[in-house]
């Protein structure tokens, strides 16, 4: 109970911290909307040439685009979020302060990143999706149950995305300069989440593997849950996400133990 209250307070503080920067949020909404339009017209051209590419019709494909824009900041599909801050704290030694707190490092950052995500989904996600829905013919479901399952899928997507970024960020304890690793993390996320093209588009073994990797839990699966196109049904999609979340969080925990045990906290 206490732990729940603490983590809720941490998440709330994460929410508030991002809510302070209103101009940045407005700029983000603008960027996402522009990016959405560019991708939308690219997809229209593609689907015009190859209808039912990846098993989607054109309005499903466009829905995929705008769901991607709505989740881009929230699920940190192009990096950002807690990762930059955590990495900076490792590099300059401020992480020592985090270790002086009577709380678990991973849980702390997870709670604060969930708070950030909640703000960015509302502040940067809803508006682009609404613009997309007004400008294009999207395949949005009418059933509240589908939306509820979609919300759960989005929450799991944020957890999986956090768990992945936590693993990358922890490598900073050994590397100190993790800029290259961050770039790799962003690139992998951008492609294997389905942000550039739905993963269902890719044929053969490559497509199979891409759809099984954890990144697909951060966009491909939530989009399929909303569209009702996940093979094996939405429940299977949610279970896939939950599975990856558990595996990756456990890996993060193991790496965290190794990092705090072996590695010197920088600076005086």
């Amino acid at each position: 109970m206490h732990l729940l209250r603490l983590n809720f307070a941490v998440a709330l503080s994460g929410f508030r911290r991002y809510a302070t920067y209103r101009v940045a949020t407005a700029a983000g909404v603008f960027t996402n909307t522009v990016f959405g339009f560019i991708l939308a017209y690219t997809f229209i051209a593609l689907w015009h040439e190859r209808p039912h590419l990846g098993g989607y019709d054109q309005s499903q494909a466009l829905t995929f685009v705008w769901i991607g824009q709505a989740m881009l900041a929230g699920a940190a599909l192009m990096g950002g979020g807690f990762q930059d801050e955590f990495h900076e704290r490792i590099r300059n030694g401020d992480v020592a302060i985090d270790l002086y707190r009577p709380v678990d490092l991973q849980l702390w950052w997870l709670a604060s990143d969930l708070g950030r995500a909640a703000f960015q989904l509302l502040g940067r996600g809803v508006a682009p999706l609404a613009v997309g829905a007004l400008a294009f013919d999207l395949a949005l479901p009418s059933s509240p149950w589908v939306w509820l399952r979609f919300l759960l899928a989005v929450w799991l997507a944020v957890v999986v995305s956090f768990a992945l970024r936590y693993l990358f960020a922890l490598c900073g304890f050994w590397l100190l300069d993790a800029t290259g690793l961050n770039a790799l993390s962003t690139l992998l996320s951008l492609f294997f989440s389905g942000m550039l093209l739905p993963l269902t588009v890719f044929p053969g073994a490559f497509g199979e593997v891409a759809r099984l990797l954890p990144w697909s839990a951060t966009l491909q699966v939530p989009a399929d849950v909303l569209l009702g196109t996940h093979p094996g049904g939405s429940a299977a999609g949610l279970a896939f996400q939950a599975g990856w979340a558990l595996v990756l969080l456990a890996a993060g925990r193991a790496l965290q133990t190794a990092a705090t045990r072996k590695v010197v906290v920088q600076g005086g």
Binding site: R5, L6, A9, V10, S13, R16, R17, T20, Y21, G93, D94, A96, I97, Y100, R101, P102, V103, G268
Partner: peptide, 22 residues
């Protein structure tokens, strides 16, 4: 040379978090 406070939050909110933590 370091701070345990949260840069973007008012002192009062930082202290609220400290209260929960401890």
């Amino acid at each position: 040379q370091r701070t345990t406070l949260w840069w973007d939050l008012p002192l009062r909110d930082s202290y609220g978090l400290v209260r929960r933590m401890y």
